[in-house]
Simulated scan of single mutants.
Amino acid sequence: MSDTHETLILASKSAARRAMLENAGVPFEVRVAGVDEDAVKAASRDLDAAALAVRLAEAKALAVSRDDEAAWVLGSDQTLSFDGGLVSKAPTLEAARDRLKAMRGRTHHLHSGAALAIKGQVVWSGVDTVRMRMRDFSDAFLDAYLDAEGPALLACVGSYRLEGLGSQLFEAVEGDYFTVLGLPLWPVLAELRRAGVLAA
């Protein structure tokens, strides 16, 4: 580890990302980036879902890094690809219901991108993908699930939280659990060690 204390800022309001870093013993502070995600998506129509997750993560890291050039800034974002297209967060619970019914019994992919910036420059970025297979759940289960989880689901790109009742929507998940939660944690920790934010 370097002799000087390296400050890390998480440019995300995600409680799951905060919890992952806290549980891993990573010292950090939170500053929400305030990036216009719709504008980034509109300017990135040439990218696939995985590359878009990285682009969004980079935009968040840069937005905060330009305001605090002395700190390392971690940006992260998640995208979901299903049926050949990009899925965004559902605006209403009714939309979440329709989306979950469409994904029921089928497979989709979650992409978690991350980027590390310092002095207004991205110095590292990466993405990890998880294959998610939903079970053929009943309409009754779906109704009970939506009632139990409520509007909190609208903050989740897939309208589920795997760390909660959403785990019952699935029959198989292939890939890293941390990626499902929204951060490719292992590569991020490796990069934080390289940067001197964490002890090697």
Rank of each mutant, 00 (worst) to 15 (best):
D48I: 01
R17D: 03
P187N: 08
S44P: 03
L162C: 12
V197F: 15
G105Y: 06
D139G: 07
A190H: 14
D77Q: 11
E163H: 02
V30M: 14
V180P: 15
K41H: 06
E94R: 09
R55P: 00
V197P: 14
R31Y: 00
P187D: 08
G84M: 04
V197M: 13
R131F: 08
G164W: 01
S65L: 00
V180Q: 15
G105F: 02
V188T: 12
V64Q: 09
E149N: 05
S12V: 00
L154M: 09
D128R: 15
L146W: 07
T129Q: 13
A51F: 03
A200M: 05
A172L: 08
D46H: 15
S12I: 00
F178I: 00
D98G: 04
A148R: 11
G182P: 10
S2M: 11
T4C: 07
S167M: 05
F178T: 10
L93V: 06
T129Y: 11
H108D: 03
D67L: 11
I9W: 04
D77H: 09
W72F: 15
Y145I: 01
L146I: 10
C156D: 06
D176W: 08
L10H: 13
M134Y: 05
K101C: 01
L142Y: 10
R104V: 02
S159D: 06
Y177E: 08
L100A: 03
G84N: 13
E22P: 07
R133G: 08
F28W: 15
